[in-house]
C-alpha cells in the first residue's frame, strides 16, 4: 500500500500529451471520491449534530446544520444515567462490558489459535490429519446457522448470563488458527533446527522465537478480532438477558425502543450512546490502519 503513489506516478507518466483532458478527468475523479467520502462520513456527523441541540428541537425539525450547546450535558447523561429501571446499564457500564467482550474474544481467540497452530505445524502427531480437518471444517459454518442449538447447549451448561457463555462459543471457529498455521509454515525451518541445536525445548522456542516473530501477525489479528467481538449482536442478545452484562452494540435496540416510548424522544443521549458504540473499533481501525488492512486482506483469503 505504501508504494501506491509511486505506482500511480509512473503510470501517469506516459500520458502527459493529453494534459488538458487528464486534468478534467482528474477533477471528475476527485468529485466522485469526495461524494463517496461524504456518503460514508455524513451519517456519523448527523448523529453528532443531533446530540448538540435540545431534544425538543429534534422533535420539530430533525437533523439540521445548527450546532447547539447540549453536547456535554448529553455526554454526561449518556455515560452516567441508566437506560432502564435497574440502574445497571449506564453508558459507562455498557462500555466496560463491550470492552470485556472485545478484548476477551480477541485475546482468547488468538491464544487458543496460536497454541493449536503450533501443535499442528511443529509436532509429529498421530492424529494430526484428523485434528486438522476437525478444526478447519469449522470454517465452513458460521455460528448463525447453529444458533438455536448452541443456545440450548450453553443453557444446559449453566452458562447463560456469564462471560464464559458469551465469549467461548464465539471462539469456536478456526479463522485465526488457519491464519497462524499459514504463517508458521512460512517461518524458515532453519530457525527451529538452530533452536534445537542450542538446546531449546518447544516452550522456549515458542515463547522466545515464534511469538516475537509473529508480532505483526498478532497485531493484525488482534485488530480484526477486537472489532469482530465488539460488534457481536445476535449471540449476546440471546445469551445476556440481565442488564449488568449488556454491551453497547446490544443496547442499541433498547435505545431505539426508548426513543419510541418517551414524550420527547431523547435523541441527544441516544446518539451519544450510538457514537460510543462505534468509537473504539473505529479508532482502532484508523490508528492501526496498515495492520488492519494487512489483517483483513490476509485473514479472509
Amino acid at each position: 500500500m505504501a508504494d501506491m503513489t509511486h505506482d500511480t506516478l509512473a503510470a501517469a507518466g506516459p500520458a502527459r500529451p493529453a494534459r488538458r483532458r487528464l486534468r478534467l478527468s482528474t477533477i471528475g475523479d476527485h468529485a466522485i471520491l469526495i461524494a463517496g467520502a461524504l456518503l460514508m462520513v455524513a451519517p456519523l456527523l448527523m448523529l453528532v449534530q443531533m446530540s448538540t441541540v435540545p431534544d425538543a428541537e429534534i422533535m420539530r425539525t430533525g437533523p439540521s446544520l445548527a450546532i447547539g450547546d447540549r453536547l456535554w450535558p448529553n455526554v454526561r447523561a449518556a455515560l452516567t444515567e441508566s437506560m432502564s429501571f435497574s440502574g445497571r446499564n449506564t453508558g459507562l457500564a455498557m462500555f466496560r462490558n463491550s470492552m470485556i467482550l472485545g478484548l476477551g474474544f480477541a485475546v482468547g481467540k488468538i491464544v487458543v489459535a496460536m497454541m493449536a497452530a503450533y501443535a499442528i505445524v511443529y509436532f509429529r502427531l498421530r492424529f494430526a490429519t484428523l485434528a486438522f480437518w476437525a478444526i478447519f471444517t469449522t470454517l465452513l459454518l458460521p455460528l448463525e446457522v447453529r444458533i438455536v442449538p448452541s443456545y440450548e447447549i450453553t443453557q444446559r451448561l449453566g452458562l447463560l448470563n456469564t462471560w464464559t457463555g458469551l465469549i467461548v462459543p464465539l471462539i469456536a471457529s478456526a479463522t485465526a488458527t488457519f491464519f497462524f498455521r499459514q504463517f508458521f509454515m512460512s517461518v524458515p525451518e532453519e530457525l527451529v533446527e538452530a533452536a534445537r541445536i542450542d538446546g531449546a525445548g518447544p516452550v522456549k522456542f515458542f515463547v522466545d522465537i515464534l511469538v516475537p516473530l509473529s508480532r505483526t501477525m498478532i497485531a493484525a489479528m488482534f485488530i480484526i478480532m477486537f472489532v469482530y467481538g465488539w460488534n457481536q449482536y445476535l449471540w449476546p442478545t440471546m445469551i445476556v438477558t440481565e442488564d449488568d452484562r449488556i454491551t453497547l452494540v446490544q443496547g442499541i435496540k433498547q435505545i431505539t425502543q426508548g426513543l419510541e416510548g418517551g414524550q420527547i424522544p431523547e435523541y441527544g443521549r441516544s446518539n451519544i450512546l450510538a457514537i460510543l458504540a462505534v468509537l473504539p473499533p473505529v479508532l482502532v481501525v484508523l490508528f492501526f490502519q496498515r495492520w488492519f488492512v494487512k489483517g483483513l486482506t490476509e485473514t479472509d483469503k
Binding site: 503450533y118 501443535a119 509429529r124 476437525a134 448452541s150 462459543p169 525451518e189 527451529v192 518447544p202
Partner: peptide, 26 residues
C-alpha cells in the same frame, strides 16, 4: 515441517482448548 519436536503429550495439551471448544460449541 520436517524438523519437528518429538514430545508426545505436549502437542495434545496445546490442541486441547481448541478441540474441546469446537466439539462443545460447533
Amino acid at each position: 515441517k520436517r524438523a519437528a519436536f518429538d514430545q508426545k503429550w505436549f502437542p495434545v495439551l496445546l490442541l486441547l482448548p481448541q478441540l474441546s471448544i469446537i466439539c462443545l460449541f460447533f
